[in-house]
């Protein structure tokens, strides 16, 4: 049965960020419903296929949110969400994946 999955990304390492988005995409391709929460760090949306992966997440009815306004300003796919709201929202998902 498909599950809702939220990936939490908090690494400033671009490779780790890209891997998180790729892993999220991987779950989507198998029918799950992934979302991504970016905590604190600047997200390198220009690296590899990151932005394309974010678009896929949005297109599959997931959300991509961050408490860092700089991320919201540089990508049309990232919306702002406070830390408090992310803490509450993440509990709505079947699986939580801090990456």
């Amino acid at each position: 049965m498909p599950k809702t999955v939220v990936f939490l990304s908090k690494s400033s390492d671009g490779f780790v960020q890209e891997e998180a988005s790729r892993s999220a995409l991987g779950t989507m391709l198998k029918g799950h419903e992934p979302s991504l929460m970016i905590l604190d760090v600047d997200y390198d949306v220009e690296r590899g296929e990151v932005e394309e992966n974010l678009e896929w997440i949005i297109d599959s009815d997931g959300i991509v949110v961050s408490n860092n306004q700089a991320n919201v300003d540089k990508s049309e796919f990232i919306e702002y969400m406070s830390v408090e709201d992310m803490a509450k929202k993440m509990l709505e998902y079947d699986v939580i994946v801090p990456y």
């Binding site: 498909p2 892993s23 991987g26 779950t27 198998k30 029918g31 799950h32």
Partner: peptide
């Protein structure tokens, strides 16, 4: 394997 394996595990 691939990320497919992870998706299967999650399921």
């Amino acid at each position: 394997g691939s990320q497919d394996d992870n998706a299967d595990i999650i399921e």
